[in-house]
Amino acid sequence: MNHLRKLENKSIFIIREAYSQFKNLCALWSIGKDSTVILWLIRKAFFGHVPIPLVHIDTSFKIPEMIQYRDRLALEWNLNMIYGINKDALKKKDTFPDKNVSRLQCCKNLKTEALKNTLNGTWARYRFNHDTKKYEIDKNNEPYTGVILGVRADEEGSRSKERYFSPRDRYNDWILEDQPPEFWNQYKTDFAPGTHVRIHPLLDWTELNIWEYIELEKIPTVSLYYNMGDGKRYRSLGCWPCTSPVESDAKNVKEIIEELRTGRFSNIAERSGREQDKEDMGGLEQLRRDGYM
């Protein structure tokens, strides 16, 4: 079995384990390459079906193509698509693009807060209605107790300390010292009321693995990842005011794989185009403690 199939099998096992053990399970879909691979693995795990809701946090500053791509796949793959948004902060213009708060605070407002309150059901969840093809407020506001995420260990320091099943207590705190052990395919699936568990099926994957797998399975991705003629492409996707592309000639998946293999980026962090990381000296750690993904 080659290394991609090995990774795939383990990830599928983890996804099935989560599905079998958590009543209120969802997957976070940021529209980026990693969580899109997660979505694909869910389809593989359940033989073409996607039996859990996909949750997207809309900051309103996402690159428009990302939203179009999201809704196209939601329709084509018959997804139970849900998004959450911090309407209040947007109304008050407590955002970085409005020049009212720092980048870090903006991330907190539009992502961390929105995510926390969407997951626990405090704020409205907008669900895609496949008949009307419009989003409407979801009647279900039960908290999600399990959340599947596309986090990878090779991204940066704080993420390499993660577990496949990582419990957060009711305040979303991340208690590093107290992480339960994981061995022999046994994970933390028994939990006290009030906790929720984050599940990371891609923990062992690298950026190169992700692209190799996208190529192998022909998974559709957003064109923002490719050089469309201007000599630039995005390596990591986020909100347009805080994300910049890298210089690259790669026009398709194969060329990205080639580019990564030549080691052109081996000394440049994948998220180097993400400005908020630079403000957080701990390399996302502060943000992650507060519940950022």
Binding site: H3, L4, L208, E212, E215, K254, I257, E258, R261
Partner: peptide, 10 residues
């Protein structure tokens, strides 16, 4: 054709 890198993982 560009295949999958066939190095093993350990």
């Amino acid at each position: 054709m560009l295949g999958v890198e066939n190095k093993e993982n350990m």
